[in-house]
Design a binder for these strands. Structure first.
Length: 510
DNA sequence: CTAGGGTTAG
């Protein structure tokens, strides 16, 4: 805008200057009155705006800020004063500037007098962007009624409201449920104001409906759009479809394929992300074979499923112990030239472990490394769990050392798996050693089976070790459950001095 | 800036 003004200004200036020069040469005595040219008017207005900006940037005296009435008109009078200094009228840009300034500093009480002045005293056609800006500012300040008021008032400022300010208002209203309630009225009024709706308006509304999980209304709106001859953009359909897939509460009851067909009839051409959403939905609802069929459908739609799609399907069939299909899917993705990544391998290794073929999993880990795909902590945790379940504890602890050596690291789940494995073999001392490490290393003990370890120690009469662990836990504000207290009391029933220690140190942790 | 969407456990 400013740029545009400057070019206009300089164009006016260069042509007019020639004219003035010629004039001056002819009439040396009386130069042209400087107040009558267009360039001078523009110049005065720019000077006035500059003066106004300076006035606005000097903060008002603090005591004046308090007295609302006095301060209220300060910026307006600055505006009028600055322009009268240069014998010129305030421009729309000047109003835009002060409204911008006031909204930035949240001085909303000053805005109404300015609007009144703009409405009643000025007579130019006010540009719409001033109102859009104000609507957004009111919305950001959660003054929704003010935002709506401004929109309704736009025609009074000799301005024809368009979809631009309507969309601004709607996106402000759609942010919160409180605002959503006002949307129907605003839409109704906007029709009375002859604002022509556009696709973008529906986009705003559909977004809002999906966000508040009223997907069925969004679909209905899509049908209305179609009926009224609006373009239906793929992005809208994708969003609706995604929201539908995210309604995971009623996984089994949603006829997702039917909905996809319905959207197709409205002209929806799903992109790969939509298929991915569909596959995830089907896998999560246990329909692995349907998910598998989606891959076929994608291919017939001319979309090559990528490794993410295949990984999800693979995890679906493995979740249902469909291991024959799993091998088929894995082969198929290789045939398609897709490169399995660490996610794919993890899913597949999970399958191998479920089939008690942990050794094949370990071989695959070595193979991955050779193919430039580094196994991560999840890969190792899977195999670790497989080994623990098979009772191969020494193999598991070897692998743990490998994890540390290779920089994969150990997380809480790693320890949980190992501790569980040791407990199932009755190796309480080993388990408590690991638990001690956990207490040193981690601040939270997410789902760690501490109680089992401590109970195990108690049952073996290793009270000192048990108490040590309990103390360490207390340092992290974690306290064992009733089971542990019971085990402690049972195991030291005959030994009163121990009972005293327990109650001194632990029951009252202060 | 060429994504997004995917892997263990609970």
């Amino acid at each position: 805008m400013l740029c545009y003004c400057n070019t206009q200004f300089s164009m006016v200036r260069s042509s007019t200057l020639k004219h003035i020069n010629r004039f001056l040469r002819k009439n040396r005595k009386w130069p042209l009155s400087p107040y009558k040219t267009k360039w001078h008017q523009t110049f005065s207005q720019e000077q006035a705006l500059l003066t106004l900006k300076q006035a606005a940037s000097t903060p008002p005296p603090p005591q004046q800020q308090k007295q609302d009435n006095l301060y209220q008109s300060r910026i307006l009078s600055s505006l009028l004063h600055s322009f009268s200094l240069y014998n010129s009228n305030p421009t729309p840009n000047a109003y835009y500037f002060i409204i911008k300034t006031l909204t930035k500093t949240s001085q909303f009480c000053d805005i109404n007098p300015i609007l009144d002045h703009l409405e009643l005293v000025e007579n130019f056609q006010t540009p719409e962007y001033i109102f859009a800006r104000l609507i957004k500012a009111y919305g950001d300040a959660n003054k929704l009624h003010d935002a709506i008021e401004v929109f309704y008032r736009i025609p009074k400022f000799r301005c024809v409201p368009t979809v631009y300010s309507l969309n601004t208002l709607l996106s402000v209203l759609c942010r919160k449920n409180e605002g959503l309630k006002m949307v129907p009225h605003v839409l109704f009024q906007s029709q009375r104001m002859s604002v022509r709706l556009e696709e973008s308006t529906f986009s705003v509304l559909i977004n809002a409906l999906c966000r508040i999980r009223r997907v069925y209304y969004a679909i209905e709106m899509l049908h209305c759009m179609k009926k009224d001859g609006f373009m239906i953009h793929t992005r809208m359909c994708s969003l609706i479809f995604q929201s539908l897939c995210a309604q995971n509460k009623s996984l089994a009851t949603i006829d997702i394929m039917g909905f996809l067909e319905g959207l197709r009839k409205l002209g929806f051409c799903p992109v790969i992300g939509d298929y991915a959403n569909l596959i995830r939905f089907l896998v999560e609802s246990g329909r692995d074979l349907d998910a598998l069929n989606v891959l076929t459908q994608m291919k017939s739609d001319g979309i090559k499923p990528d490794i993410l799609c295949y990984t999800m399907v693979l995890s679906g069939v493995i979740a249902n112990d469909n291991f024959v299909k799993a091998d088929e899917v894995f082969d198929e993705l290789l045939v398609l030239g897709l490169v399995p990544d660490v996610y794919t391998y993890n899913v597949y290794i999970n399958g191998l472990c479920k089939q008690n073929n942990v050794e094949a999993g370990i071989t695959l880990i070595r193979g991955m490394d050779g193919l430039g795909c580094k196994p991560n902590i999840i890969t190792y945790n899977l195999v670790l769990e497989g080994l623990c379940k098979g009772g191969k504890l020494s193999r598991a602890s070897e692998l743990m050392t490998e994890m540390e050596m290779k920089g994969v690291g150990l997380n809480l789940l790693t320890y949980r798996i190992m501790i569980n494995g040791l407990l199932s073999r009755g190796e309480i001392i080993e388990a408590s050693c690991l638990l001690e490490k956990v207490l040193d290393k981690f601040s939270c003990l997410w789902s760690m089976n501490v109680d089992e370890v401590i109970c195990g120690l108690c049952q073996r009469g290793m009270l000192c070790e048990a108490l040590e662990l309990i103390e360490k836990m207390a340092d992290k504000n974690v306290y064992p459950g009733a089971r542990v207290w019971k085990a402690l009391l049972l195991s030291c029933g005959s030994n009163l001095s121990f009972t005293d220690t327990i109650f001194e140190d632990l029951v009252d942790p202060t």
